[in-house]
């Protein structure tokens, strides 16, 4: 089955991973800007990172027939440094017209602090000023519920089309509030800290598949870039229809991304 992984940090994966993803049916990836595992020293370091996301990764992906899209921001962890964040916010518009940029992301909260909230709001203003879609990271573990509710509070203060916003890393206790408020939701299949394929399928069975996407969020930490096919297999084993599986792993991310002017997915069936 063809699928799209809407959240995968390929800058920290090998070219072999691209090959494996292609063999498993992955036709497109979207890569949100995130934390590199260490705090960067200057805005210029982000400019280089944005070049990597807009110039280098699309070429690496194309070698395996995978289309690469991206989102730009300063992540929630480094957003604690307000001065650096504002430098990065000034750089972002230079890259918004690059052909693979879908919007602003993954912005959000990490430890639910005041500075993170301030920079989240400044990113939202930037996104609205440039008519960009938004992809949002929610915190992990004990911080997730509080952080997700704070994010929903802040989103409610902006007049943005809710169907152009995806709130990611939802789990059993946060998926309801996100979908009920009219946003898209993403589930991340990730060892230990997030969701397993079985629990993700449980969430689909409880909440339905409308506006719900699934991703691997593979990065430099313990993660599995091929986690989406694990979900496909789990849905098949439970007897779900192929049309429902395709909706979750292909149609939904395609429909969400299609609201961005730079999203030009080649239909794999017509290649």
């Amino acid at each position: 089955m063809y699928y799209i992984d809407p959240h995968l940090h390929m800058v920290s994966r090998t070219t072999d991973d691209y090959e494996t993803l292609a063999k498993m049916g992955c036709v497109a990836i979207s890569e949100p800007a995130f934390w590199a595992g260490f705090d960067r020293g200057s805005g210029e370091s982000f400019r280089d990172y944005f070049r990597q996301l807009t110039e280098v990764e699309p070429k690496r992906a194309a070698q395996y027939g995978i289309q690469h899209f991206t989102w730009l921001c300063i992540n929630a962890k480094e957003a604690e440094n307000v001065e650096l964040s504002r430098e990065v916010l000034k750089i972002i518009p230079e890259f918004l017209d690059c052909p693979n940029v879908l919007g602003i992301g993954e912005i959000g909260l990490n430890k639910n602090t005041k500075n993170e909230a301030i920079i989240f709001q400044e990113h939202m203003e930037l996104a609205i000023a440039h008519q960009q879609q938004v992809l949002i990271h929610t915190p992990h573990l004990e911080d997730k519920y509080q952080g997700t509710r704070m994010i929903l509070d802040m989103l409610g203060e902006h007049s943005i089309d809710r169907s152009r916003v995806l709130v990611d890393h939802v789990e059993e206790h946060t998926v309801g509030p996100v979908l009920e408020a009219g946003y898209w939701a993403g589930m991340t299949l990730y060892p230990v800290t997030k969701c397993t394929p079985s629990r993700a399928v449980d969430i689909i069975e409880r909440h339905g598949a409308e506006r719900l996407c699934v991703n691997s969020a593979g990065d430099w930490g313990p993660s599995k870039p091929t986690a989406v096919p694990d979900l496909v297999l789990e849905m098949r084993r439970r007897g779900h229809k192929e049309s429902l599986i395709k909706k979750v792993v292909y149609d939904n991310p395609r429909d969400f991304f299609s609201q961005s002017k730079n999203f030009n997915l080649e239909n794999p069936a017509e290649r």
Binding site: E142, D143, Y145
Partner: peptide
Amino acid sequence: QLLFSRTYDEQWRNEFSIASR
């Protein structure tokens, strides 16, 4: 999940002295 979560306070903005927009 809720048991293992920090509590959410609707008035969190007051603690940060951040005004709603």
